[in-house]
Structures are given as C-alpha cells and as structure tokens.
Simulated scan of single mutants.
Amino acid sequence: MTEPPADPLQTLTARVAALAELCRRLADENRSLRHSQEQLIAERAQLVSKNEQARARVEAMIHRLKALEDNA
C-alpha cells in the first residue's frame, strides 16, 4: 500500500523551518569567522610592529658597527 501524499502546508512548514535553522547556523558561523578575522588582523598588526622594531634595532647595530670600523 502507498502512503497518501504529504500535506503541502506541512511540507512547506518543514522546509521553512529547515531554512530558518540553516540561516541561524550560517549567521553564527559568520559571526565566529568575523571574530577570528579581527583577531588575526590584530595579531598581524602586532607582528608587523615587532618586525619593524627588530629591523630598526638591526639597522642601528649595523650603523654602530660601521662607526666602530671607521674609527679603528
């Protein structure tokens, strides 16, 4: 025996509920990804700053070494 066709309203209601749940999950994932992106951008800015500081220190050492070499 075959099943009677499902009520179209119930089918539509179930599909809308599934889409609403998917939308909620995607919004949560999007929020999480944006938060991660903000953290990575901040971390990158810190690393760039540290890199610039290290470069400046190395350049200063090179200048001091050259000055010492010129005085020798």
Rank of each mutant, 00 (worst) to 15 (best):
A72I: 07
R55W: 04
A67M: 11
E59G: 01
V48E: 10
V58S: 03
M1A: 03
I62G: 03
E38N: 06
R64Y: 04
Q39I: 12
Q39H: 12
T11L: 10
C23N: 11
A60I: 05
T2L: 01
V48K: 05
Q53S: 12
A60V: 06
P8C: 01
R44P: 01
R31A: 15
I62L: 12
Q39P: 02
A56T: 11
Q46K: 09
E21H: 11
R24H: 06
Q53E: 08
V58G: 01
R55I: 09
R25Q: 15
A54G: 01
R44S: 05
E52H: 15
R25S: 13
N30F: 07
Q39V: 14
N71I: 02
T2K: 00
E38Y: 04
N71S: 03
Q46V: 03
S49A: 15
A56H: 12
A42F: 09
A45I: 00
V16P: 00
L65D: 11
R44N: 06
E43P: 02
D70Q: 13
A20I: 09
T13F: 06
R44V: 05
E69F: 10
P5C: 00
T11A: 05
D28L: 12
T13E: 05
R64T: 03
N51I: 09
S32N: 07
A54Y: 07
H63N: 15
R25W: 11
E43A: 12
Q10S: 08
